[in-house]
Design a protein around this nucleic acid. Sequence first.
DNA 1: ATAATTTTTGACCATTTGGAAAAATATTAG
DNA 2: CTAATATTTTTCCAAATGGTCAAAAATTAT
Lengths: 210, 210
Amino acid sequence: MKKTDNKTPITRIQKQKRLVILEAALEVFSKNGFRGSTLDQIALHAGISKPNILYYYASKQEMHKELIERLMDKWLAPLEEMNAKGDPIAEISAYIKRKLEMARDYPRQSRLFNNEILQGAPHIIDLLNGELKDLVDEKAKVIANWMKQGRLTKTDPYHLIFSIWATTQHYADFDVQICAVLGNDEAIKNRFIKAEKHLYQLFVRSLEVG
Amino acid sequence: MKKTDNKTPITRIQKQKRLVILEAALEVFSKNGFRGSTLDQIALHAGISKPNILYYYASKQEMHKELIERLMDKWLAPLEEMNAKGDPIAEISAYIKRKLEMARDYPRQSRLFNNEILQGAPHIIDLLNGELKDLVDEKAKVIANWMKQGRLTKTDPYHLIFSIWATTQHYADFDVQICAVLGNDEAIKNRFIKAEKHLYQLFVRSLEVG
DNA sequence: ATAATTTTTGACCATTTGGAAAAATATTAG
DNA sequence: CTAATATTTTTCCAAATGGTCAAAAATTAT
């Protein structure tokens, strides 16, 4: 068995182990941020020894880098799917739904992203200024067009998108607070269903014309 | 000069130094979180030596604790001010305004809070389950009453409050991303004015009856 | 089986970090 | 001024941390 390259995993076992490690790293990084996380914590979560982690990833940085890279693809997708030719209200509702599902299904990724932003986005600032900005510019134009056509109430498209990001990601990033405030088990269990209803109403009622 | 107690600062110089240190600590903690921050970083920001910091604060923990305590008072105030006897739309608009002003004027406090929540709120979980929950319960009742009286469109009061928290704090916590996406200087300069307009429209239009 | 290769780990290292102790310096009281 | 007190810094330490290395264990190929 040859190890042709230490970057790309070849064997199935290598892929699996790298995934196990990434999973543990996500758990730790998303909670403590990059600086606040230790290899020991990650090793503990992964159930292997610290040097074994460094056998698969050359450094703590490299693990974090791969996590962030994988994250960004997934992060941009929901907005990319917004279709200029669809019905404005339906498209925006669907976007909210997608983002809320991401908050529900990938809360740790959301927190990883939040942590990165809090620290000044050192690893993704170029991406924010480039890919992300381009994508938002494009979709903001789409929304602005809908508004010009009288199919949506006029408001600032950029800040509209910010509001959608904020409200949906809040359910991942501030989950502890939300559960604390909701208090009773039933409300906690239904929090994402309730959130969806509320957000639909919030955005649709304010964007519907007339 | 007597040092009666090492908890409460007596002299003006002690108060000043403690403030300088807290200021530096806020700067560092809000960016890197508790674990990710070092006494050296704080000392550097404060312009004094590390042991000198520990002369005023017994430990890193104690500094963080005082910051969090000071923060929470300020954090609950805007919601407390919401008046059951006022006009619903005006009260909610004013609440949004207050929260947005906090995001604008105290972004580091907002990020400190965000960091604490991301880490599972270890230092304030009791406060969230106690004071915060009680306050939100009370205000949610007020809002629910307004809705029952037909003065606001019905929606879940808790999730309405969450939405206001999310949208306003987003402008502090995700400032890097917002500035990156807005790109041009003019839009960045006006971001809080634009945000206020947009949020008023978002919430007022969706909550107004009829 | 056995040799070659891959995977895993225990022992170790240099640096960073939170913090202690004590000496040195500055300030204030008399 | 002098003594008492308060502040600051220099020096140091033990633990934690990111990472190395060689040996051991497991796997694979023949």
